[in-house]
Each structure stands twice: as structure tokens, then as C-alpha cells.
Design a protein around this nucleic acid. Structure first.
Lengths: 105, 105
DNA sequence: TAAACATATGAGCATATATTCATATATAGT
DNA sequence: ACTATATATGAATATATGCTCATATGTTTA
């Protein structure tokens, strides 16, 4: 049995760390946000384009992008009347990779 | 920019896959469940022991273990009146590792 | 058998979440 | 200036979630 990789790799996690960690995973715990992230993994997209690809309302997507923005998982850039979103965290894809492998068995 | 690791590594994810993936991450989106998992990463524990370590009620822990059981992330074994829980998924620690690194910067 | 201990679970409640709808703001084109 | 387009956001609502409390079930010990 593992002797605890958490302690091995540094200090213990504080209660606050657990809250932050949970907060991080919460971003991936909704299908819509996941789909947005996966779309952005292939390249930057503007809001309506994401909405169209996902077959969802502009508002719903905008609300979720706000969440992802708050978590600093995506960044945005204004280009005229459009706002282009892209991934803004090197770890995002690493985190997803393991999960996707898991789902695929 | 990445050309899409999702497509690279196999077929596309279906809507159902996204639901499953979200469901997987949901398990890690709560501090209590995260703490339980981290505790179990160091070895098997019975319910009350987890409860005492986390300073939470037996009921609260039992409810969360039920969730983790449903997700097949933990397994349980009855030993007399105690029930011992342990991790039951090779991917669990891999998923957590990336997240923990992220939280630690 | 009775009492103590360990766990599981249903009901209830407070809070969080995801979406829709309406609307505000800003930019571009006519 | 007017209209169309793109995005953001507050309010409302329906649903999900996490915990407590009470209690049921099962096991060990006196």
C-alpha cells in the first residue's frame, strides 16, 4: 500500500488547500464547462461559436465562461465586437487527460 | 496551439462521455470527499476513524463514502462490526497528483 | 438478553448551481 | 442616427448537494 504520496511530495495539505483543490475540480464537474474546455483545447473561439458548437444559448455559455474566467482557467481577448476565449492554464489539459483515460478505460 | 489531444488519442467524446467525465470530477469537487480520498491514499481506514481524523460526524462521512462507493472510487470490506474502506481505482491518485501540483503552483 | 458500539440511510433543511429570460452595453455596418 | 450583432449580467426558478438528526440494522461484549 502507498505510504502517502501527498506527504512525500511536500508539506501536508491544509484545510484551505483542500477547499482550493475542490474548487479546482468543481470547474470540471459540469458537462457544459467540460465541453467548453475541450473545444478551447483545439484553439481559441469566440462566445457564439462555442454556443453554436455546443447547441446552447449564448447566455448559458457566457455564464459558464465567467466561472472559468474566475478560476483563471481561460483568458479572453476582445477583438472588435467579439470576445475570443482560450485556455489559460498549463495544467488544464494534464488534468483532463487522466480523466479522459479513466472514462475510456 | 494544440491541435486537439482529445481527437489525437482516439475517438471523439460523446455527450454521454462528457456527462461521465463530469461525474468523475464531481467526486473531487467537495473538500470532505477529497480529504477522505487523501486519507485513504495512505492506507485503509474504517468509517469512525475517518470521521475522527476529519473532525466530522459519522453520518456525514458515511454519506460521502456512499457517493465514493457509487463512483467505484473506494471499496469496502466488513471486518466484524467495522467496515474498512480503501481506494479502488488506479487513476484516483494520478488525477489528484496533477491537481495538487496545480494548487501548490 | 441487554447494552454498547459501528455503520447505513431516510427525511428535512439550507445553500449552491445551471439554465432561461430580459436587458444593458458596446461595436459595426447602412 | 438606426439597426444588427456580440457579449455580459441580474433576477428568477428548478434542481442538486452536504449536512444534521433520528433511527434502523448488525455485531460484539457483559
Amino acid at each position: 500500500m502507498n505510504e502517502g504520496y501527498v506527504k512525500k511530495s511536500g508539506e501536508e495539505l491544509s484545510i484551505d488547500d483542500f477547499a482550493k483543490l475542490a474548487e479546482l475540480y468543481k470547474n470540471f464537474s459540469d458537462p457544459t464547462r467540460l465541453r467548453i474546455i475541450i473545444e478551447l483545447a483545439s484553439g481559441a473561439l469566440c462566445v457564439q461559436r462555442i454556443a453554436r458548437r455546443l447547441g446552447m444559448s449564448q447566455s448559458a455559455i457566457s455564464h459558464q465562461l465567467r466561472v472559468l474566467r474566475g478560476a483563471r482557467l481561460v483568458k479572453h481577448e476582445k477583438e472588435g465586437k467579439k470576445v475570443t476565449y482560450s485556455l489559460d492554464d498549463e495544467h488544464v489539459e494534464d488534468i483532463l487527460k487522466v480523466g479522459i483515460e479513466h472514462v475510456r478505460h
